[in-house]
Design a binder for these strands. Structure first.
Lengths: 228, 228
DNA sequence: ATGTGCTCTGAGAACGCCCTGAGAGATTGT
DNA sequence: ACAATCTCTCAGGGCGTTCTCAGAGCACAT
């Protein structure tokens, strides 16, 4: 269930939006002032933020600005009573994803919210979930991998590499991308390490009859296919 | 340089927007009617589409609907003279990313455009968009190229050259431009290398019946046509 | 027809990508 | 403490890729 943060200083607006959006199947959290909103938003745990500009403590503009500065890219829908074009342009340039002018119709609001959530959904795919590609099963919770029922024992690093590849079926990942995804930001290892680990994975997969799963795309990187 | 498709039936609007957005550093292409717009947009080679709803041939709604049905997810900014909330909600539910009501201020338009381009930029990793030109498919995520379903195996450099050309359909690219786009800043290669790689590409494309796709424009450079 | 560039192509050398076995540290389990 | 495992580097070999060179082919103007 998508999580939405509603920021407005009027209690009536908060409860009205909260009720309406909950009815639309969203998980709604509210905040009444800037600092509270910023603290909540910085967790990055929201899928969308409805942000009134006129709020106490810290204006909506500032909240948005801080968020983007901190690298939080949650979509933000600004809400304002003013409809001056200058404000609108400023808000969008600060990194907002849309603008609503009070009084707005609830239908338009819901449509905007849905549009932003839909795009978000389409771009993020499923994350952190159990993967299934044909006969291959990859479960990040239990760190278990199996091919057509037969279990495959993997070391943590081997698992990380396979998971990175399997979560993007048919997509070619370069060695640098794999270093980023399976090794993390520090990048302590060289590209050859990736080659070595792909080799380990292949050997283990081969043993259960899935040797062809992990393909080399010469000059580009590696790929696991949904087809097998 | 981000590419924008401007769709409007009024020539005045087209030139005004074209001029203004070009000044903002965008590469602008225009279309005056629905079918033309759809054909251009389906190539997937644009970063943003400004789409008037009232256009001849095929309404903006329909163009948008078809685009989304075909799996093209280029951001679309709808433009309409009407400001009825029903229309706005409908448009957003069809998969639009924003809505502008005529008459709109150019400042607000630019702000919206920049907001959408910025988000796009942030979300798309290094791999670019998937391109479709008639029978040709070029997918940077999987590094796969195909002509009417038949796959074409390309080396990294060959792929880079084809991708550079295909992302600017019908545009002639000089050898120097191709060196910049497909070789990168270092420019370690000579212009003859471009000729050689165009030759490689032609040979491989010929093998699947797409020999005529990559044309030479003598004295200027090379071009791939949307028409084939 | 002839000349002058521009374009294409085959040959081949240099290069770098990819795989693998061996093994050195680090870490974990007993 | 000892063994087992894990992580990663190194060196070497095979081979595909990249790019240059030289010369032939082609378009266009005089």
């Amino acid at each position: 269930m998508p999580r939405v943060l509603v920021v407005d200083d009027e209690a009536g607006v908060r409860t009205a939006l909260g009720r309406g959006l909950t009815a639309e199947g969203l998980d709604v959290v509210t905040a009444a002032d800037g600092p509270t909103a910023l603290r909540a938003a910085l967790t990055g745990s929201f899928d969308l933020i409805l942000l009134d500009i006129i709020i106490p403590g810290l204006s909506g503009y500032r909240v948005l600005e801080q968020l983007r500065n901190e690298g939080v890219d949650t979509p933000v829908l600004l809400i304002s009573a003013k409809d001056g074009e200058v404000d609108q342009a400023d808000g969008l340039d600060l990194g907002a994803d849309g603008y609503l002018v009070k009084p707005f119709s609830f239908m338009v609001l819901v449509a905007q919210v849905r549009a932003l959530l839909r795009r978000r959904e389409a771009e993020r795919g499923q994350s952190g979930r159990r993967l299934r590609l044909g006969e291959l099963m990859v479960d990040p919770a239990t760190k278990q991998v199996s091919w057509s029922g037969r279990p495959v024992e993997l070391s943590p690093r081997e698992f990380a590499v396979l998971y990175a590849l399997a979560s993007r079926p048919d997509t070619v990942l370069s060695k640098d991308e794999l270093l980023r995804l399976a090794w993390g930001g520090e990048q302590a290892a060289s590209r050859n390490a990736v080659e070595v680990y792909v080799g380990y994975l292949r050997r283990k997969l081969q043993a259960v009859g899935a040797g062809h799963l992990l393909r080399t795309v010469r000059g580009h990187g590696y790929r696991v296919g949904a087809s097998g």
